[in-house]
Design a protein around this nucleic acid. Structure first.
Lengths: 226, 226
DNA sequence: CTTCGGTCTGTACTACAGTACGGAGTCAAG
DNA sequence: CTTGACTCCGTACTGTAGTACAGACCGAAG
């Protein structure tokens, strides 16, 4: 048995091991107020009660959900005080959800643009023919601030299109990217195996014949069945 | 007219204005190697040719696509040398796309968990009845290191699963997110209209019965056809 | 000729989540 | 009683993308 009287207490190293983090991290969390300074019986060595392991588990889980350490500290403070109402915690979680959804939307926009650029860039050859360099070189920097979001509320629908003429997963990827660039299309997945495309779109603004034409222009066939 | 002989050259302030960034930012980019030190005719003042505006536009656009400044510097270096092949740029863009898709998946997993927690937490009342606090308090930290990347090279395949019991697009979204959290699943799209899920997965690591079970646990039926 | 704004350099600071290190002290086992 | 592992504290450093500021210098207009 190490120090800390019985097995009722843990040294910082033991705690770190059980919590799956580094020793330095625990002291860092202490500085940040996530865990309180434990009692120090033996010559200044920290002696932790076991429930701190669970506390660190809480920190770990909350981190997985995207909470920052500062937010986790607040969450823990709420949890520690018995008169806290669940609504307080719920509110924090809802706010974090909103943040995450914002993040997803930002990423999704990048993804669509990149897919589009990739689909139009030849695999090799002269640089100035590459859509990527070209698109980025479009100099349209705003001297003033620009704000213009929108697209809240989602009456999104899904549709499947049969596609003929694909000969590998690569073709599927190409069509996917191509569809994603069309106005009104939120996302598109194409399966080579089943020879079909699934498109998530806004029925108010999408132009179906246009989508079909775009796919056909790329060298594939879209039978008019649906 | 300010200094810099004619309007052929810009002072740092003018450049900053046209590019829509701060003066400090331009000098910061210079330190980072994104733009080269311009000539200094008048008493050490930087005099920029106009094409630097476009260069800063490139930086701005690339940032929007998620490239870091370091990556943008490499992109610019490629663009600056005439013998660069488009494949080099394409490769960078493809890598960034993969990173972004990773990010989307991570966020999506957070989103699902948070939505789930929120749906089960009462709007108010005693804290210990709140699913959020409860779920986070589950102490299951790994004592050992967990490393298990891999997944480079992509023998990804697509599969369609029939799903019964959905009653709106919301159900589809739920299943989508749920599938995305399973190991080996790269992405999943579910169509309420056609009652099926399309899963992009790594055949080497995915556990199909596990996926089916996950969907069934959520209250839907998956006929064993395929 | 003075003043006001712009520019110069270098360093320090922000947020985020840790990691690393030096030098000292301590614990338990051989 | 020595050795090796552990712990202490404080500070400095990582990477990302800037922002802020001090003190000096410069150019043009009143």
């Amino acid at each position: 048995m190490p120090l800390g009287t019985t097995q009722k207490h843990l040294t910082i190293g033991e705690l770190a091991q059980r919590a799956g983090v580094g020793v330095e991290t625990i002291r860092f969390y202490e500085r940040k107020g996530l865990i309180t300074q434990p009692v120090r019986p033996a010559a200044g060595y920290r002696a932790y009660p076991q429930d701190v392991v669970a506390r660190l588990g809480f920190v770990h889980e909350a981190k997985q959900l995207g909470f920052t350490l500062k937010e986790i500290r607040n969450l823990l403070t709420l949890r520690d005080s018995p008169q806290t109402d669940a609504a307080a915690v719920r509110g924090r979680a809802a706010a974090k959800l909103a943040q995450i959804e914002d993040g997803i939307n930002r990423f999704q926009r990048m993804r669509v643009t990149l897919q589009d650029l990739l689909s139009r860039c030849p695999g090799s050859g002269e640089l100035n023919k590459c859509s990527i360099v070209e698109a980025l070189s479009v100099s349209a920097p705003q001297p003033a601030k620009r704000r213009s979001r929108g697209t809240r509320g989602f009456p999104m629908k899904t549709i499947d299109l049969t596609i003929q003429g694909m000969h590998c997963e690569g073709c599927a990827k190409t069509i996917e990217a191509l569809l994603a660039t069309e106005p009104g299309v939120k996302s598109a997945t194409v399966s080579y195996g089943s020879g079909s495309a699934r498109v998530l779109f806004d029925p108010a603004s999408v132009d179906l014949p246009r989508l079909v034409k775009a796919v056909e222009r790329a060298g594939y066939r879209v039978p008019e069945s649906r």
